[in-house]
Each structure stands twice: as structure tokens, then as C-alpha cells.
Design a protein around this nucleic acid. Sequence first.
DNA 1: CCCATAGTTCCGAAATCCCGAACTATGGGA
DNA 2: TCCCATAGTTCGGGATTTCGGAACTATGGG
Lengths: 115, 115
Amino acid sequence: MRPLFHPAIEDVQPAAILHALSDPSRAAIFAQVTREGCVEACSAVAALGDRVIPKSSLSSHIKVLREAGLIRCERHGIEMRNHSRILEVEARFPGLLTGIMNAYARSHGGEGPSS
Amino acid sequence: MRPLFHPAIEDVQPAAILHALSDPSRAAIFAQVTREGCVEACSAVAALGDRVIPKSSLSSHIKVLREAGLIRCERHGIEMRNHSRILEVEARFPGLLTGIMNAYARSHGGEGPSS
DNA sequence: CCCATAGTTCCGAAATCCCGAACTATGGGA
DNA sequence: TCCCATAGTTCGGGATTTCGGAACTATGGG
């Protein structure tokens, strides 16, 4: 297993980031990796709770996030550790990720229909 | 032709916005509509210059932008006028669209390979 | 009434996405 | 060393989405 491909920060494309985060599951995975600093993939599934993501889908979601430049993945023994590249990406595209993650947070929390 | 559907601002979803703008052609159309305040669709094609977008594709791109809540479309006589909903969307999701449009601007301008 | 312009719809081909099943990689034990 | 369990990846093919040419509809002049 040669090390996984990760784009250099200057090769990261906004279109790829938007595509990656336009899927709510991927956005949730990225949010969790960013919050917790470093998670391995299977626990991410568990933590997403109600969403049940088959592991083959999870694997490809993580690949999309990695190839978009949003996370960095490395193997430690038997498990994969994923950590967020949010600082690098924010340095290159100021406000992009914070805007996106705030928008998702707002749409989850702040728009409950009456109740 | 009954008036076209436009989502209420509180129904606009971040995922739909990211999906809409993850396509560079659509992002370019939205940027132009936002810059110029109001453009009709065919001139948008012309202005995008090198990209040649067939008109059926253009029509569906505009539909995606409209249904995502990014533009408002109304018919004036024979032509369609599109205007940006950027102010509404920014009020609901602060920083989202500015972050995205800045990122695209930066990736177009600021990373020319040597030359 | 007919025509030209501006967009939309239709539909088949191409590209993507989704996910179960099979496979590979790694680290224990026994 | 061999075998097993765990963690992820790859494969395959059905479902969904996208693309774009051709035909169609809507509107406003002659």
C-alpha cells in the first residue's frame, strides 16, 4: 500500500470542494473530522448516528474528501486516521469552509418548523 | 406560462447551493448575473466567451440555479431576465456566497503557472 | 397570418453514484 | 508460522443524473 494521494494545497480546486461538501453525508463526515481533529472512518459512521452509510459508500466518500484536499488520511496499524486540512484550505480560500460549515449548521439548527 | 417556481429564502438549502455552484459553468453564470445585476440568458452564453454552452444545457443550468434559490427569473416580453438573490442568501447564510465567489476568483486569477 | 427570436422539453447516450459481495492489508494470538 | 478478526478497498452492475441535439412552445413584430 503506497501512501495515498493528496493534492498539494495549491492544486486544490474550489469546484472539487463544493462538490465534495454538496453531499450532506460527506459534509457531516468532514465536520466530525474537523471537530474531533482526527477520527478513523468506522467510528465516523457510528457517530453520524441515524444515517446508515454502508462501508463501501463511506470509503468512497472519504476518498472524495481526500482528493478534494479537505482531509488527510494515513494508516496507523490496522486503522486509518483522517484529519482535517481546514487550516490549509482556509489559508488558501479565506472564508470558504467557515461559510459552508456555518451554513449547514444554521440549516440544521435554525429552521425547525414551528413545533 | 405560469410564473416559474422560486424557493422561499427560508427553504433554501446549503446542499443545493453547493451543488449548483460546484459546476464551473454555473458558477460563472451566477457570477455574471451577480456582477451585472440582471442579464438575460443568451447574452450570458456570449459573455462566458470560450466556454460554448449549448442552449439546452444553459436552460437547465439556469433552472438549477433558480431552484437552488440563487437567482430569480422573470419573463419580460420575449426575453428572460435573471437577477441574483445574493443579498437574500447572504442574509440567511452569512459568508457563504462571498466565500465561494472569492475562492473561484482566486483560483482563476492567482494560480497561473509561471508563464 | 407568418416569421424570427428566446427558451423549454424530450429523449437517448454517456457519465456518476450507490452499495452488496468479494478481496486485500495489518496485527494479534496460538 | 498459520489462522483469524478487524478495517478498508475494489469490483460489478443497476439506478440516477447529466449532456446536448432536435423538435417544440411562447412572445412580439411585420
